[in-house]
Design a protein around this nucleic acid. Sequence first.
DNA 1: CCTATATCAGATCGACTGACATCT
DNA 2: CAGATGTCAGTCTATCTGATATAG
Lengths: 154, 154
Amino acid sequence: MDDAARLPPSLLAITAFLLSKAGRLARQTLGEHLSAHQLHLSHLAVLTALADFGPAAQRQLGARLSIDPSDLVAVMDDLESADWIQRRRDPADRRRYVVSLTKAGWTALEVAARDAAATHDELLAPLDLREREQLHRLLLRVLTHLDPHARAEG
Amino acid sequence: MDDAARLPPSLLAITAFLLSKAGRLARQTLGEHLSAHQLHLSHLAVLTALADFGPAAQRQLGARLSIDPSDLVAVMDDLESADWIQRRRDPADRRRYVVSLTKAGWTALEVAARDAAATHDELLAPLDLREREQLHRLLLRVLTHLDPHARAEG
DNA sequence: CCTATATCAGATCGACTGACATCT
DNA sequence: CAGATGTCAGTCTATCTGATATAG
């Protein structure tokens, strides 16, 4: 039943639905590429935060990435046991860790970047380069407006 | 810490991440608007399918909407107890239901359509009409290419 | 004493799996 | 008997809440 498999036009007319569906698909596709290298989306998020902003406490990372501090624990455990990050107690405030990227962590990030590129080739195949940039900019504007966390650094 | 709340530029450079985040936001925003009227996204999906294609069996609806048949049961229970749909056994094949929209179901759909419009005004506020259409078309092309279910009827 | 940090235990929700009674 | 349909029970994951030990 190829015919019976088509989504209702009334649903496809709702941009929010398309966003939701495309978002799920994007997350899944990126997730599959990353998992081939023992990486998870939350891992990638933490690695980029450390790469872009330098060492930080777990609380800071969680606030930046909108990841609940309690959920971050397992993520950091993974990253540490893979030797991608290092956790040291902050001598100035021994409640905190100072989390920093290792050499292997930087390498993992490069791998993840290739995964992202592969994801885009797959996910955005029907769009040419100009259209991909167009989509990217539109999404960025939407997020920047709605989510104060989405602002790039100024 | 306004400064500490910004997402890593390296993450914001990944379109798949933007899609994932925007998708989550879209689902959440639409969900909030709908829940004000005792509606859920899955309810909306089923209602549009019945409106666009007419009465159908639960299995068909599930296949169309990529909702697991076992998960549909609770959704249909909700819709039925709200008197938005009607379940009759198919006399020609008594395994199936013939699910159809009620008058109240059509009304609920109109309400949901207003919720969707309100969602877009909120979600897509930074985009003008032309840009919203642009985004919509780009998303549709991406979905149509990747998900055979996303094809509109031809 | 109050607050912040990291952690753990548990609730909740959406999506998925397996089994089953009923019917064709 | 094999296969389809609706249903139920249970798993798995991500997300969120609440509590707690330790430190400031």
